[in-house]
Amino acid sequence: CHSECLGNCSQPDDPTKCVACRNFYLDGRCVETCPPPYYHFQDWRCVNFSFCQDLHHKCKNSRRQGCHQYVIHNNKCIPECPSGYTMNSSNLLCTPCLGPCPKVCHLLEGEKTIDSVTSAQELRGCTVINGSLIINIRGGNNLAAELEANLGLIEEISGYLKIRRSYALVSLSFFRKLRLIRGETLEIGNYSFYALDNQNLRQLWDWSKHNLTITQGKLFFHYNPKLCLSEIHKMEEVSGTKGRQERNDIALKTNGDQASCENELLKFSYIRTSFDKILLRWEPYWPPDFRDLLGFMLFYKEAPYQNVTEFDGQDACGSNSWTVVDIDPPLRSNDPKSQNHPGWLMRGLKPWTQYAIFVKTLVTFSDERRTYGAKSDIIYVQTDATNPSVPLDPISVSNSSSQIILKWKPPSDPNGNITHYLVFWERQAEDSELFELDYCLKGLKLPSRTWSPPFESEDSQKHNQSEYEDSAGECCSCPKTDSQILKELEESSFRKTFEDYLHNVVFVPRKT
C-alpha cells in the first residue's frame, strides 16, 4: 500500500485506493498535508475557505447554543480562536489581540433580562453583547459592586439597553466600559436606550469621564423622579442622539420631579488639616426662599486615587461607600458681607490618608415646582503625618564578641513616609551569675543571650482551647457569634421535631 494509506488498500502504491488515510483526505486521495488554498479540518480532512465560511455563517444565523462559528488559524479551520487571539470578521482569520481579548457573548432569543446578581454573573467577562440587555433589578445585597464585577467589562451592545423598574439602582456607572450601543435591534418605538419607572436612579454616568455613542435609535425617559433633566440632556449631547427624540420621548413632568437638581456650584473657602482632623468651610448658599434650606450634607471617604465619582458603590438597598454628615444651616444675616460661612470639623480620621470630599445642599421643593440647590466639586484632601507606631517583631542576635545583629519589621501604621529608623542602645553591667558559677561542674549549661522565638506554653494553649472559665478566673470563653447562636437554635429545633416524629412513629394507638 501507499505510504499515506492506513489499515489496508485495494490497489498497491495508489493513494486513492486506501481504506483510511494516515494524515489527511483531499478529493478522494490521501495526502501528507493540505496544500494551499485548503485548510486542515478536524485533523483528517482538507477543506477550502468557502466550506469553513459556510459553517461560520450557519452557526451565526441559527443562534443555536453550542454550535461553533468556525475560524481560520495556522492553516486550520477550527471552532474558535485560541487564547490571546480574536477573529477578523472580513476573512475569519485569528489575529493577536492588542491588550485583553474581546469576548463576544451571543444571547438566546436576542435579549437577556438581568433581574438578579445570579443572572448578571452569566455575563461575567463579556466585552461584546450580541443582542439586547434588559435591566430589571428590584433589590439585593452589595448590588453596585456585584454588577460592576460582572457587567463592568461590557464595551458594546449590538441591540438596545433597557432599564425598567430597577428600584435598587442609583447610577449606571457599573457599566464602566460601555462605549457603544449599535441599535441594530430596537425596542418598540425605535428606541435604543429605554429608561422607565426607576424610582431611585439619580445618575446615568459621570459624563466628564465617560463617552457613549448610540449609532441608531432614540432615547426614552419616563417616570424617573430623581433623575434630573440636565442629566438626560447631557446624554443626548454626548451620545449623538440630540435631535432624534420626539416631543413625548422625554417626559418633562415625570423626570426629576422629586430630585434636588443642583444648578449652582458650592466653593470651599477654608481648608485646614491635622493628622486626624480636617476643618472645612464653604461659601454660604440661600435659595430664593431661605426657609427652603434644610441644611447641608457632607460626604467623605478614603480615596487612594483621584478618580472618585459621587455615586460609586451606591445602591438604593443601603450600600453606600460614603460617610454622610448632616449639618444645620448657619444663622442668616441681613448683611451679605457678614454672612457666616458654614463648615464642619471632621474628626477621627487616619493620618497621612487622602480623602475625597464634597458637600451639597438639602432643600425642600418650592411652590413653583422649581428645584434649587448647590453642590461642590469633589475635592481631595490629605491629612498630615504623625509619629508612626512601633516597629514590629524586633530580633537581636550576637554573632561574635563585638557585634549584635538587630532586625525588625516595619510598623503596622507608618502614618507617613518613613525615611529612617533611630536605634538606641545602652551598655549593661555583666551578670554576677557568670562569676559565681563553678565551671568545672559536669552538665553545666552556660547562660545564653542568643534570641529564641517566643512560644506559647501548654497552660496558655489549654486556656485558649477551654470553653469555660478556669477556677483562677484568668480566662473566659469568647462570646458566641450570631451565626453560632442561630445554628444552635436550628439544631435544637431539629432535635425537638425529630423526637416528636419518633414518638408518633414508635407509639401507635392500640386498636379498641
Rank of each mutant, 00 (worst) to 15 (best):
W205T: 02
N198V: 01
W282G: 00
P388L: 02
D377G: 14
G131Q: 01
C105Q: 00
L280K: 00
S396P: 12
S321N: 03
H341K: 10
N320K: 11
Q306A: 06
V170P: 04
S116N: 04
L161Y: 01
K277S: 08
L265C: 11
W352V: 05
S389T: 03
D315M: 08
D289I: 02
N150P: 09
I188R: 13
G373E: 02
W286L: 09
T113Q: 03
R370S: 04
G152D: 09
A385R: 08
C317Q: 04
G110L: 12
G256S: 06
G125K: 09
N190E: 11
Y300I: 08
H233I: 12
Y300A: 09
R176F: 05
L212T: 08
P225L: 07
H222I: 04
S208L: 14
L212R: 00
W322I: 02
L349E: 00
T353F: 09
N136M: 02
A144T: 03
S132H: 03
E155A: 05
I134C: 02
I250N: 09
N334A: 12
T241P: 10
Y160W: 06
T241C: 05
D326I: 05
L294M: 13
R247N: 04
G217D: 04
E246H: 15
S132M: 00
T254R: 07
R176S: 12
I214T: 12
A385K: 13
I357S: 02
E231F: 13
Q258I: 02
R347N: 08
K234C: 13
W282S: 01
M235W: 06
K218N: 02
D384L: 13
E264L: 11
K234I: 09
L108C: 04
I114A: 01
W352Y: 15
Y300W: 04
K253L: 08
S208F: 14
P394H: 05
G140Q: 03
E302M: 07
N248Y: 03
W322P: 02
L201N: 00
L196Q: 13
D206L: 10
K103W: 12
G159C: 02
T254Q: 03
D257L: 03
E310S: 03
W205S: 01
Q245L: 05
L298N: 00
R247P: 05
T213H: 02
F174H: 05
L345I: 13
A145N: 12
Y305S: 06
E187H: 07
I134T: 03
K234N: 08
D115W: 02
K409V: 15
Y305P: 04
A385T: 12
R370G: 10
G373S: 07
E264P: 11
N255K: 02
K277W: 10
Q354G: 03
D328E: 15
K350D: 05
S396I: 00
T383L: 02
K242Q: 15
V324G: 12
K301D: 07
K253N: 08
I405F: 13
F220R: 05
S119H: 01
F193K: 00
L169A: 15
Q121G: 01
T353M: 02
Q258R: 08
K103P: 08
N263P: 12
A303N: 06
K177Y: 06
W207R: 03
I214V: 11
K226R: 09
R164H: 05
V397S: 09
G189R: 02
K301L: 04
T185K: 13
S274F: 14
V324W: 07
S192G: 13
S239C: 09
T323K: 13
I157S: 00
I188K: 11
T213P: 04
L219V: 12
D292W: 15
G139E: 04
V170S: 03
L201V: 11
I181G: 00
T371M: 12
E122K: 14
E187T: 05
V104W: 14
E155P: 00
S338P: 10
E246C: 08
Y270V: 08
A120M: 09
K301I: 14
C126N: 00
L219S: 08
Y194A: 10
S116K: 04
S119M: 11
F193D: 01
T383R: 00
N211I: 07
L362I: 13
E122R: 05
N307Y: 02
V397L: 14
D312L: 05
T213C: 11
G110E: 04
D393T: 06
D367K: 04
G373I: 10
N190L: 09
N248R: 09
H106V: 07
R244Y: 14
R370D: 13
T215Y: 11
E156W: 06
N198S: 05
G217T: 00
K177T: 07
E231L: 13
L227N: 00
L178F: 05
R124Q: 03
E155R: 15
T323S: 10
A149Q: 15
N307E: 15
L161G: 00
K253Q: 10
W207P: 03
K242Y: 06
R165E: 02
L266P: 00
S389L: 07
F174W: 08
K277F: 04
P288L: 09
L201D: 00
P391Q: 01
D206F: 03
L123C: 05
Q258T: 12
I163L: 04
Y194E: 12
V381S: 03
N320Y: 09
V324I: 02
D367F: 08
N399V: 07
G343C: 06
W322D: 01
R247H: 06
A303T: 08
G348S: 11
H106F: 04
G183F: 02
L265R: 14
L212F: 04
D312T: 12
Q306F: 14
E246A: 04
K103V: 05
L151A: 03
D257E: 07
T127Y: 11
D326S: 15
G183Y: 02
I278Q: 00
E236T: 15
T386Q: 03
D335Y: 03
I379Q: 03
L153D: 09
D249I: 00
Q306M: 02
D206R: 06
K277A: 14
F175L: 11
I154A: 03
N387R: 10
W322L: 03
N142P: 05
V381M: 11
L204N: 03
G295M: 14
S230H: 02
D276G: 15
F193A: 02
N198P: 00
G125L: 14
H341P: 10
L180T: 09
G131H: 02
R244H: 12
P388A: 05
L279Q: 04
G295W: 07
K103D: 11
G313C: 03
F175S: 01
E262L: 15
F296P: 01
R179P: 00
L219G: 03
L147F: 10
W286M: 04
G343H: 14
Q203K: 09
D289W: 05
L180G: 07
P394F: 07
L108M: 11
L143W: 15
T113V: 04
D328N: 09
S319C: 12
S389M: 15
Q354P: 10
L362P: 07
P287W: 02
K103S: 10
L345C: 06
F358W: 04
G131M: 01
I114P: 00
F268R: 00
S192T: 01
Q245D: 04
V390N: 08
E146T: 07
K226W: 13
A168M: 07
L265Y: 07
A145M: 14
S398C: 14
L345Y: 12
Y194H: 13
L293Q: 08
H210R: 05
D384R: 11
L196C: 04
T361Q: 07
